[in-house]
Amino acid sequence: MDTRKEIINRLRSAPRSSSEPRPDVPPLPELALGRSELIQKLMDELTKLEVSCHRVVREEVREKLAEILVGEGITKVIVSNDRIVSAFDLSAWGKERGFMVYRSSDFNDRDTLKRVVFEEVEAGVTGVDFAVAESGTLGIIHDHNQPRLVSLAPVTHIALVPTSKVVPIYEQVVDEVFLKGGNIPSQFTFITGPSMTADIKATPFKGMHGPRRLIAIIYDDD
């Protein structure tokens, strides 16, 4: 008998047990918030996580981004090709402002992309598909326009967060991404603050393996 069958059969032949009664998901307070309170709550949570939050209007995004890069001393960035980022045509903006801008869509092999994100650039710029007010969590669908390493390997991650993407709680995200019957992404990532650890002497610090800095530019798009 093969291993799979053996394991399943043993589980199946075990005496059945019943489940405990299931209460509802506790009605989380975020569900009761209005639009602007929700955005405020998101920003409060992000700030608690030491994420730098910048609230601007749509027209100011490119300017803000330039200001942040200059402030951080960053000259080379990679930008993902998702719909949010592409709308800002950051290639042209980079040429204007004197930043070296790689677009993830410029790469068609893994190794070249890896060399750039691991060794070249100082920041990765991505859009987000969701921003969850519950915990200041950014949700990103990874696909051909949103490679996984862009928001992971560079030491700084700058996220463009349109306010239309703000939702109260996680359940709304997973329903939307996984249960609407569309294409389920190969990877979906919830990002809540920069990479961190406290594994040595219980001393917390940011940037263990992933980004040390997470910066959110939040702008109105609706």
């Binding site: 949570e45 519950e134 915990s135 969590t137 696909d143 051909h144 996984f178 389920i184 992404p185 190969s186 990877q187 979906f188 990532t189 919830f190 990002i191 809540t192 603050g193 920069p194 990479s195 961190m196 992933g210």
Partner: peptide, 14 residues
């Protein structure tokens, strides 16, 4: 409330 990264993988890359 939630850890820095929660990743959900459904199959290999497309």
């Amino acid at each position: 409330k939630i850890s820095a990264y929660v990743t959900l993988d459904t199959g290999p890359k497309k």
